[in-house]
Write a protein that binds this DNA or RNA. Sequence first.
DNA 1: CCAAGTTACGCCCTCTGCTGGCATAGC
DNA 2: AGCTATGCCAGCAGAGGGCGTAACTTGG
Length: 637
Amino acid sequence: MMAGTEISVPPEQFTRIKALEVIPEVLLEEEEDGGCGGREPPGPGDVQAPCPYGPLPARVPEGEQEPPLTTEESEKHILTLQTVHFSEDVQLQDISWLSPQPQEGLQVTVQQAGGGGLQSLLWPGEGSQQCVAISIQEGVYSLQETEVMELHVLEGSMAVASEESKFVVSLAESAGLLKLAKDQEEGQLLAEGGPDPQVGEQLFFVEAKPGDEGRDEIVLTVSDLNVEEQEDKPASSQGHVEKATSTKKTNETKEIKRTFRCDSCVFTSSRISSFNRHMKTHTAEKPHMCHLCLKAFRTVTLLRNHVNTHTGTRPYKCGDCDMAFVTSGELVRHRRYKHTHEKPFKCSMCKYASVEASKLKRHIRSHTGERPFQCLLCSYASKDTYKLKRHMRTHSGEKPYECHVCHARFTQSGTMKIHILQKHSENVPKYQCPHCATVIARKSDLRVHLRNLHTYKATEMKCRCCSAVFHERYALIQHQKTHKNEKRFKCEYCSYACMQKRHMTVHIRTHTGEKPFPCLSCDKRFRQEQLLNVHFKKYHDANFIPAVYECPKCGKGFSRWSNMQRHSAKCGSGPGKPAALGKARRTKRKPAVPKEAVQEDEAAAKELPAVRLEQCPGEVVPVPYGGVAAEEVTCDG
DNA sequence: CCAAGTTACGCCCTCTGCTGGCATAGC
DNA sequence: AGCTATGCCAGCAGAGGGCGTAACTTGG
C-alpha cells in the first residue's frame, strides 16, 4: 500500500473492489479478435482468471461464479457503492485493459447525467503502488437512475469536470470486470501524490452492473481507460473517445470534437447521444414484448413491425403493383427487384450487380471458390446454406416433391417440373437441332447432342469405307450412310460385285478353283468353311439331326426353306400371305448360308440341309432326320 | 421518439447444365 | 448375339432472384 493520503470516508461508505483480476492477455487477444456484435462481454469467469499481479484484496472466492444478471435486476438495484479501488499490488501499467497507457495521478469525477455532484478519484500512487478509486460522495442511486452517468477524468489534482470530456458511463450488464462489494473496508483507497504533469487528459470508459444478489453490490466494468489525443498519438483500437482537436494539458472548457468509439464493436460516433443510444445495443434489455408470441424487442418500432407480421398488416404498398410490405425497407427492395431494377452492389470482377449486398457476397464466392458450408457426412461443401440443405437430401433420401399425376417423387422441384412437362403435358416442347433433323425432348440433351455430333474435333475421323476424313461426327455419319448398300467390292474376272470383302474372297475362289477347307474324314474339299461343316455333319456325324420345314397349311415336311415356300404357295399360303410365314421371317429364320455363297457354289449348296435357326412351335416344327427323303418328312412322323 | 434507410441472415424458388443409368436402334 | 451410339430420364449441383424478418443507423 502506498503511503498516501487516505480519504476519510466512513467504512460503510466505501465499497472495495471485491476482485480486480486483470484479464489475461490471452483473453484480451480473444476479445480483440472478436468482431463487432459477436464479442461476448467479459463474464464472471473472466474475473476468476488468475491474476498475474498477485492477489488483490478481497478477491472473489475461488470458484465463485458471477451469475448472469437479468434486466429486472439491473433496473432496481440500489447503488450503494461509494468507493472503488484497486489493490496496491496492481500496477496500473500492467493492467493494460484498464489503461493502455497508464497514467499516474489521475483524478476522476463521476457525475450523474442529470447533474449531481458525485466524485470519484482514480489515483495511482508512487512507484508500483497503484490504486484506483471512484468515490460517490453522496446520495444513494438506483442503477436505473445511474444507468447514464458522465464520468470526467481529468489530469492533475483538480477534479474539475469538463463538459468536453464528459462521456457516458453505462451501467450495462454487458461487462463486469470490476466487482465492487459493499461494506468492505479493507484496502480503502487513498490518493497520494500528485498527478503526473506529463500525462494528458484521459477518459475512462466504465460500465457498471449489479453484482451478486443485486442489492448489495454492483459491478463496474472498466473496459478501457484512455483518451487519446489524435494529434499526439495514433488512435488506439481500444480507445473510446478521441479528440479531433488537441486539448493537451488543459482543463479549459472549449469546443472539442470527439469521436466516441464503442469498446465492444467498431462503432464510432461524433454525437454522444448516438453513442449513448448505440451502447444500449450491447445490452440485453428488451422491454417491449409481443403480446402474441411473447418475443421481446428493444424498441417500440421493432415490436410494431413484429406484430405486423402476426396481423398481416402491411402498411407499405407498392405503387406499381399489388404488393405490400411490413417495412419501408422491404418496399424499397421490392421496387428495386421488380420495377426500378436498380442494382447498387456491383461485382468488381465481372458485370454482375445485385439489389442486395448479401447477393453480391454470395456471388463473390463464385469467383473465390469459397465454400463455407461443409457437409458433415461427405466432402461436399456449399457456397450457401440452401445448397447444403438441398444436398443433404442425397444423404437422407428425402424426395419432397411429388408428381400429382403419377405420384412419382423427386428430390428437386425443377426435376419434377420437367417430369410433369414431359410425361403429363399435352404440348410437350421439343428442341430441334439447328444442324440436323434430330428433335430432342430436353434442352440439356440437345446440348449433349450438339456437343457429341456437331462439335468440331481437331482430330480427323476417317470413313471406314473410303479415304474421306471429317472433323464433325455428324458429317462422318452422314457420309458413311452413302456407302450403305453400295457394292464396293467388284470381281476382276466377272461382273460380280458385293458389299463385303469376305464375300468377294469366297467368290474369287470360284475363278481360281481354290478349295482351302479339306474334309478330314474323306477326300472332299470345300471353298467355304461353313460348307465343310455341313458336309461333315451330314455324312460323318451320327448325332446330327437335320431340321425339317413344315408347311403351315398342310403340315408336309421339307428339308429346305425354299422348297417349303414354293409348296406353300401352291397350297394357298403363298409368300407374304400366311401369317406363319411372315412371323417366321420376323424371327430371322433364314438359311444359314449366305445367299451369295449358295449361288456361287451350287454344287455344294445342294448338299446343304435346311438349318433352322429358331424353333417356332405351331408354325415350322423341326422333325428328326430319319434317313427318309427330306421333302416327304412330316411333323406326324 | 419516429420513420426511413441500411445491414444481415435465412428461406425458398427458378433456371440452367452436367452426369450417368437405361432402353433401344443400328451395325 | 454382341457391341456401339444415342435419346430419354432422374439426380444433382451452380447461380441467381425475390421475399421475410430482425436489428441497427441516421436524421428530423
